[in-house]
């Protein structure tokens, strides 16, 4: 499965469109990580626990999108977009969407 956020896949031709595919996940922060983040809030800087959490969430959302695309018989997803929103205090939703296509 090839992913790009361009209109096409360079060097290949799109032969079939399957429409929108998407994947999403909602993640809440871990209590232990939250305590560490509380300390880090004093001095500032990177909150590694949160960075990892959001990266894992993004990987999972992408995996779900890929699963939806391969179920349609696509071999690539073009014009992929990411979006993050806070649905509740301490929980983030990661949404990934794109257009499933077959390229040759």
């Amino acid at each position: 499965m090839q992913l790009t956020n361009l209109q096409t896949i360079p060097g290949k031709d799109i032969v079939e469109h399957f429409g929108l595919v998407s994947g999403s996940t909602v993640r809440a922060k871990h209590v232990g990580k939250d305590i560490m983040a509380g300390f880090k809030n004093m001095v500032g800087g990177e909150l590694k626990g949160y960075t990892e959490l959001l990266n894992e969430a993004r990987d999972e959302a992408t995996a779900r999108m890929i699963q939806a695309a391969s179920a349609m018989g696509a071999n690539a997803v073009v014009n992929v977009r990411f979006s993050t929103s806070s649905v509740a205090q301490g929980a983030s939703e990661i949404y990934v969407y794109g257009t499933a296509v077959r390229v040759e």
């Binding site: 790009t4 896949i9 809030n41 500032g44 960075t51 992929v80």
Partner: peptide, 13 residues
């Protein structure tokens, strides 16, 4: 051609 991403969470002091 592949999708790549990078992210970071940064807190204020």
């Amino acid at each position: 051609a592949n999708l790549v991403s990078g992210s970071v969470v940064i807190s204020i002091d």
